[in-house]
Design a protein around this nucleic acid. Structure first.
Lengths: 406, 406
DNA sequence: TGAATAAATCAATTTGATTGATTTATAGGT
DNA sequence: ACCTATAAATCAATCAAATTGATTTATTCA
C-alpha cells in the first residue's frame, strides 16, 4: 500500500535516528550527532531535550578539544529500560535480562529434552521472574519479553491469541496460544520470532553487524536456521520463510557420488541426532559442553561430521552469494566456538573450486559476536527494537502506535 | 549512514506517492487518492495542484455517483514526457519510445551478431533519433535514455565517464565509456542498468508486478539473468550482483548421473550457442522467430534442450524459494511465448519431488507481461523511475537532487 | 423546490525544522 | 591578566507543510 507521510512521522523517524546514532556511535556531542545525521544542531538540541526528559539519554562528560565551548557528550541511559530474551529449543532454554544498551545483566540456562508446552511455560515463567529478581529491577522498567522458537513457524492470530501453527521442532505444540499464555502469566508484552531471524537482529543491534547493513546469518541451533538483514531491517519474505535453511534440499544438490542420507540441511544439522549418534558409539555427550570437549580430542566421528557438514553447506553458500549478494555472512549460534571456527575454515577451502572465478564481489565470512546467547540476545532486542529502531515504515501511515511519540 | 529527514523530504515523498497512486490506480478523484494514501483531502488538493501545474497530471472526467458533487477524476498526462529504452545484447538491439504512462509508441528491432562498440553505438544513436522523429515528439520532452546490457556488469566511474569494466557478454567492450559517448551523441541523459534488473523494474512499473511488491524475475536474454524487487524497490545486493544467475553453478548442484556439460546456468541458457547447435544439425535458425517456428514443429533437439533446461533450473528455483521467499517468480524475456509457457510447465512438474512437502508458502509462477520488449521497457522506465518513483531513501538526506522538488 | 450529501477548496492553525543572533566556555597570543 | 578567535549550544523568529474546521459547489432524491 502506498501511504503518505507527515510531520509527526518525520519527527518520529528523526527521534529514532538520533537515539540509534547515540547507541551506535556514542558518546557523542549534539554537534557530532548533527554531523552524522545531517540534521541541524538546533533540531538535535530539540530532540535530545525530549529524549533526556524521557530518560532515554543522559549526559556523559564534557570534552574540551581546542578553542570553543567544550562538547557535552551524550550517551544511552543503560538503566532506562530492560528487556528479557527467551531462547527455547528442543534441547535447551536460555533466558537473559539485558539493559537498554544491550548488555546482558543476568543469564539462566537449562538443558532440556523435547519439553511439553506445560513444562516449558512453567520453566520460562519461573526463569523470567528469577532473573528479574536477581538483578533487582523494577518490573515496570521491563519493556517486554522476546520469545525465540526454532523455525519454520507459522503464526496465526486466531481469536486474539498468537498461536504457533506449524512448530516443526516441537511435536505436541500445535495450536498452543503461547504468546497469550506467557503474557497472562508474566503481565508483560511478549513478542515471538523465529530464533535464527532473532539472532540476525541481535547481531545487527549489538554485534559486528552494527556497521554492516545487509547480511545473511546462518544460525546453528538444535537445527539450522537463517536470518536476513537488508538495509538494516529484518527481511522475512512473503510468507515469513525467507532464509528458512532447514528445508534447503541437499539431495538434489549433492555432488555426484556423495550421499549424506538426508534430503535437507536441517536433517543433517540436527544436534540431538548428532549427540544420539555419538552416544550410540559410546561417547558420553549430553550437552554442548561435552561436544566441545569431544571435539578438542580430535574425535573422528565428529570430524567426519564436520567435513560432510561443510560440504553440504557449499550449495547454500553459493546460493546466498549468487542470489542475495550480501555484504557478509555471519555464522553463529549454539556450536562450540572451536567447532564454528573449524567449520568455517573447512568451508573456505571447499568453496573456491565451486565458484566461478570471474565473479567479482564476494561476501565476507564472519563469526557472529554473540555466541551461545545469540538468539536470546536477538529476541531480547525485539521489545526495544520495535519501539526504537529507525524503520522506513514509520514514515508511512500504516504503522501501529508505539508510545513515546516514536 | 543514518540520516534524518525534514519537511521538504516528506513533501517530496508525498508528491511521488500521489503521482504513483494515480499512475497505478487512476483515474482517481482527489478524495479517492486521499483514501488510498491516508493523506488528508486538503493535502491531496495542494499536491495535485502542483502536479497539474507541472503538467504531469490532468483532469480526466467527472463522475457522478449518488448525491454530492461529482468527483473530478485525475490521470497521468501521457504526453508529459517520453523516455527511450535501448536493450542491447550480443544478438540484437531493441529500441523503444515510451510515453509517461509507459505505453510503447515506437519500436525498432535489429538482429545482431556480437557487434563492436563502434557499430553498436552508431546503430543506437541512429535508432534513437529515428524513433523520436517517427513519433514527432519534441526532443525537449525526452527525459532520458535507458540502456540495458547483459550482466554481470561492473561499472566504474573513472574520469567522470561511466565505463563497463567487466562486460562478459561483449568481448572487445572493456573500458568503453559507453554512457558518456551516448550522452554526447544524443544530448540526453543516459542511465545504464543490467537488462535483467531492468526487466524486473519494468515488470514492477508496467506489468503484473505493479500489484506485487516483492518478486524475482528470471530473464531469458542472449544469456540468463535475474532481477529482484523487494518492497517495490530494485534490490541489487552489496556488489550489485544479486540475482546474477548466469554464474549460478549447475555442476555442483546436478542430480547424480546427469551431465549438462556446463558448469553454470549461463553456459546452458546461451541463445547464440543453441542456435549454432541447431544450425550445425541442419536447421535454418537465425532469429528468435525461426526458433519459435522450429519449436512448433516439435523439434527433438529443442525439446531435449528444454527438458534439460527445466531440470537445470530446479536448484535455482528452490534456492529462490528457500532463501528469498518472494511473492512471485516472473519468467520473461526474449524466448518465444510458447517456449516460455512450455518451459514453465516442465519446471512445474519437476519441482514437487524436490520440495519438502511440509513447506508452507510458495511463490506464484507468472509469465512476465512485457514479452520481447521486457528489458527495453525496463530501461525506458529508468529515467522516469529515477525522477518519480517513491523511494524510501528520498526521505533521508543523502539523495541527489532530482528536479521538480520530487 | 429544497433537504441531504459528498467533493473540493478556503482560511486559520499547528507542528516541526530552519535561520540568524546570542550566550557560554574554551585556547592561545600578547 | 586580558583580549581575540573559535566552537558548542541555545534562544527567538521564521518558514514549510499538513491539518482542522468552515464554506462553496454540484449532485440526488423526496
Amino acid at each position: 500500500m502506498l501511504t503518505g507521510t507527515n510531520l509527526q512521522y518525520a519527527n518520529s523517524y528523526n527521534n529514532r535516528i538520533i537515539l540509534e546514532t547515540i547507541r551506535l556511535y556514542g558518546p557523542l556531542s549534539r554537534v557530532g550527532i548533527a554531523g552524522r545525521t545531517q540534521l541541524t544542531a538546533q533540531t538535535v538540541t530539540n530532540i535530545t531535550k525530549k529524549l533526556m526528559k524521557a530518560g532515554l539519554v543522559v549526559e556523559h562528560s564534557r570534552e574540551r578539544s581546542g578553542p570553543g565551548a567544550p562538547s557535552v557528550m551524550l550517551k544511552i541511559n543503560e538503566k532506562a529500560g530492560y528487556s528479557v530474551g527467551i531462547d527455547l529449543d528442543k534441547d535447551h532454554l536460555t533466558c537473559i535480562l539485558v539493559n537498554f544498551n544491550g548488555k546482558i545483566r543476568q543469564t539462566k540456562n537449562v538443558d532440556l529434552h523435547f519439553p511439553s508446552p506445560d513444562e516449558a511455560i512453567e520453566l520460562m515463567v519461573s526463569s523470567v521472574f528469577q532473573i528479574i529478581k536477581e538483578e533487582g529491577v523494577d518490573p515496570d522498567l521491563i519493556w517486554g519479553v522476546g520469545l525465540g522458537l526454532p523455525g519454520p513457524l507459522s503464526i496465526s492470530e486466531q481469536d486474539d491469541a498468537t498461536r504457533i501453527v506449524n512448530p516443526e521442532a516441537f511435536p505436541g505444540w500445535e495450536d498452543v496460544p503461547i504468546v497469550r499464555e506467557l503474557e497472562t502469566r508474566l503481565q508483560m508484552p511478549v513478542l515471538l520470532e523465529n530464533n535464527a531471524s532473532a539472532a540476525a537482529i541481535g547481531e545487527h543491534w549489538y554485534g559486528a553487524g552494527k556497521l554492516i547493513d545487509s547480511f545473511f546469518y546462518i544460525y546453528f541451533g538444535a537445527g539450522l536456521g537463517g536470518g536476513i538483514v537488508v538495509d538494516g531491517q529484518l527481511y522475512s519474505g512473503f510468507s515469513s520463510n525467507a532464509g528458512e535453511l532447514g528445508y534447503f534440499p541437499t539431495a538434489t544438490f549433492m555432488e555426484p557420488g556423495l550421499n549424506y542420507a538426508f534430503d535437507h540441511l536441517g536433517g543433517f544439522f540436527d544436534m540431538p541426532r548428532l549427540q544420539k549418534k555419538l552416544r550410540a558409539q559410546g561417547y558420553q555427550v549430553h550437552s554442548l559442553n561435552d561436544l566441545g570437549k569431544l571435539y578438542e580430542k580430535d574425535n573422528e566421528v565428529l570430524s567426519d561430521w564436520m567435513e560432510a557438514g561443510s560440504k553440504s553447506l557449499v550449495p547454500l553458500i553459493l546460493g546466498i552469494e549468487y542470489l542475495l549478494d550480501p555484504e557478509a555472512i555471519f555464522f553463529g549460534g549454539r556450536l562450540p566456538d572451536a567447532m564454528l571456527h573449524a567449520l568455517l575454515e573447512k568451508l573456505q577451502t571447499q568453496l573456491p573450486s565451486h565458484r566461478i572465478t570471474r565473479k567479482i564481489g564476494r561476501p565476507r565470512f564472519n563469526i557472529a559476536s554473540a555466541g551461545l546467547e545469540a538468539a536470546a540476545m536477538g529476541v531480547a532486542s525485539l521489545p526495544l527494537y520495535s519501539s526504537f529502531a529507525p524503520q522506513h515504515k514509520l514514515l508511512m501511515r500504516d504503522h501501529r502506535y508505539t508510545g513515546l511519540g516514536m
